[in-house]
Design a protein around this nucleic acid. Structure first.
Lengths: 347, 347
DNA sequence: TCTCTTTATGGAACCGGCTTCATTTTATAT
DNA sequence: ATATAAAATGAAGCCGGTTCCATAAAGAGA
């Protein structure tokens, strides 16, 4: 008897007195096998606890049932929440996922990209980092294009100039409007927009909508109330301090994302500003942290589940010769919690 | 010219006028190649943007440069923070990681285990879930043993009865003593222990130490102050409510982990109990959430970096025929923040 | 210039599956 | 029982690398 750890189809075939073709057939149910023969083969497989070597299979099938997922930082709940949904969808379809944290290091990003391609992944899902900068360096776009010839790339909530990959995304414009409309419905008119970085898709979209509301006079704002302070808790923290140094405050703040909103809440608490009694605030993304801070933050929720599942489905589909649209939008939803209240109730 | 997406060493060899052996040599630097020849081969490779197929390489080398990482939930910062460190260590050694979220579903866990083995990973890192239940079902232990014959398994901060895999772990006993000693040094004596589940290693260790302190009369506690309420924020939340229903309160609470501590803080805020003025609290793990709540939570920090790196190094080493101890301990550190203050200052 | 090494290179088998095509076996119809 | 169609199985090559072994080329010493 051979070393039990390297049993191959040949060993199984030998002992069962059949050919490897037959073993392969029972393994994959790829063609009819007489019941008696099948039973015999299975018995031998069980005896040795046979597990086929996926490398060999993938090599010949040219499919690995593997997906690469690239994101900047999995400890960031915004990314991890999409990731787990994607992983679940992948599991259902029999895929495993190589997770690649780039930590926003473009060199690391390139290394991972290269590795994933060498490992013959069936597709790559890209989220955040360089993948959602509106403008990107030409070299990187070129890199992506070369990969796309061979491996489908799906971008989640991102857009990359000059790269025509698949994109699944929340309709952020619509979601942002939902947030704004909610504030308006509460009677707010003097609104600040906090957070973001110009040149990043998710910021640009929101800035744009905000301007439209201002132009149509639905919102009254001031230049100093639009604070471009990134995407982090610290960014929100600093922004509120900055706001508090001004002569007059808005009655409501809409944050670029939940981290910013959380930072604002944290700063408010430290500086004795009451939320929502003195200022209402609304976030974006509905990461679970919004429920553990006090007050829990009203926010806009993505359809994580659908979004992630779609990304995975596209990759699976492409590998089965299906054809997909390049762009797919998903709904968002207003999640009302405690950080925003009607203007009347305030103060 | 062939389809540019499936260039092989044979194509390179042809065009460069050498044999595949030579191409392989320049690819791996596995044997000397005359400078002129090497240059010629590299030139052709560059021309076609050649990327070797890692499947084929792994098949023949019997090494995949791939690690499987199994944990219950990557959205949980406790796990994700270790994960990213492991991923970084892996990247440095040229490994990719298959991340597998089990969501505590043992069926999913088994599927992943099977898949990872079929994909021929060079090793599996296991964290949480069934992997740290002191007692586990025999079938699962058996499953693990079969895998271990072929694939090294490293457990992080876990222990599984009857499974003699590699283990890297924080010295939780020592860490917990650090926490307890700190509270004592602040003058606390009446202390509650909140959270955990008996039968899980990290709980059992702490309960044990706590008892020792009680027996040696360093701590005065009551039966009702020891509340086994799991590992979640909700668990901490409920536990504090329970404590508040009692006739008398401890002056300090030591939580099984940071989530519990955060839940306690949240409940305290809602119920008007001042922390740390009325009760001090200390957590365990040093997840980053401890810094975003108010008051920021005093806690015990693991040496994530070292822990994760060790797990990866062991797998890499075993694959290079090195020999390692089965168990490796790492230091912890007391992180003093604002949730605990001296007994004198309280009230 | 002619052995004797040393260094470079090529040929072919191998890693462990899958798949096409040919062949044998079995079932169906006459 | 015989011709014919259908089902089951086997043989061999392929997927794309690596590596051992043998041969050829280059360099060293006499």
């Amino acid at each position: 008897m051979k070393d039990e750890n390297s049993i191959t189809v040949y060993d199984i075939a030998d002992e069962a007195g059949v050919s490897v073709s037959t073993v392969s057939r029972v393994l994959n149910n790829s063609a009819p096998v007489k019941e008696k023969t099948r039973a015999r083969v299975i018995k031998v497989m069980d005896k040795y606890n046979f597990q086929p070597n996926a490398l060999a299979r993938s090599l010949s099938k040219k499919r690995t049932k593997t997906i690469g997922f690239i994101l900047p930082d999995i400890t960031n709940p915004f990314f991890s929440e999409v990731y787990v949904k994607a992983e679940r969808a992948a599991l259902d379809l029999g895929y495993s996922i190589f997770l690649s944290n780039t930590m926003n290091d473009s060199e690391v990003e390139s290394i991972y990209l290269k590795t994933l391609v060498e490992k013959q992944v069936d597709g790559i899902i890209f989220m955040g980092g360089r993948a959602n900068e509106t403008r990107t360096d030409a070299a990187f776009a070129e890199e992506m294009k070369v990969i796309m010839k061979k491996t489908p790339i799906v971008m989640i909530n991102g857009e990359m100039e000059g790269v025509d990959c698949y994109r699944v995304k929340t309709d952020e414009a619509d979601g942002f409007r939902k947030g704004l409309n909610y504030l308006l419905s509460l009677g707010h008119k003097e609104i600040a927009l906090v957070g973001g970085i110009k040149g990043i898709t998710s910021t640009d979209i929101k800035l744009d909508i905000f301007s439209q509301y201002v132009e149509s006079a639905q919102i009254e704002t001031k230049e100093e109330w639009i604070i471009e302070s990134g995407y982090s808790i610290e960014g929100g923290y600093e922004a509120l301090k900055q706001l508090l140094s001004l002569a007059d405050l808005p009655t409501a703040i809409i944050a670029i994302n939940d981290f910013i909103a959380i930072g604002v809440v944290k700063a408010a608490k430290e500086m004795g500003l009451q939320i929502p009694q003195e200022v209402s605030i609304i976030g974006f993304d509905n990461i679970y942290l919004t429920t553990i801070v006090l007050p829990a933050i009203t926010t806009i929720s993505h359809n994580y589940q659908e979004l992630a599942a779609k990304a995975v489905n596209i990759i699976d589909g492409i590998n089965n010769n299906q054809v997909y649209e390049k762009e797919h939008f998903f709904d968002s939803e207003l999640i009302i919690r405690e950080s925003s209240i009607g203007l009347m109730k305030m103060e």
